[in-house]
């Protein structure tokens, strides 16, 4: 049982390291978010599972697994909110970016259209 805990902890640390190195090495914001939303989630998850296995007790396991479920459910939501906000505030994808089907789909009022729409003519009363 203790061996399993050690393996889980080692795996968790490995993936957190991957996330950390990825955040430094990746060329732009969107690729960095790939590192934090996937690898970091898995890293924390493995360590929380290790806690649950180590104590093997209902109250501890319930708390650890509830935290795990919360992180797995919220990490993608946080990444989505941040990615959308960054795109709207004008953070450009890096030069390697091969295709950008989102370009030109945002309206002035942050509505997102499914087909490309020309921005409306400026309102003369303004």
């Amino acid at each position: 049982m203790l061996t399993l805990v050690y393996v889980l902890v080692l795996g968790g640390i490995f993936f957190l390291f991957i996330a950390a190195i990825g955040v430094v090495r990746m060329p732009d914001l969107y690729n960095r978010m790939h590192a934090t939303s996937k690898a970091a989630t898995l890293g924390v998850g493995l360590i929380l599972v290790a806690v649950a296995v180590f104590y093997w007790d209902l109250s501890v396991a319930a708390r650890a697994l509830a935290t795990l479920a919360f992180i797995v459910l919220t990490a993608p939501v946080a990444a989505h909110a941040l990615g959308r906000a960054a795109y709207l505030s004008g953070v450009k994808p890096c030069e390697d970016t091969y295709i950008d089907e989102l370009a030109g789909h945002y309206q002035k009022n942050h509505r997102l259209e499914s087909v490309e729409v020309k921005p409306p003519a400026p309102d003369p009363s303004e």
Partner: peptide
Amino acid sequence: TLPDRVVGLDL
């Protein structure tokens, strides 16, 4: 950029 800093903070 600021979003990059937020990613660092999140990590």
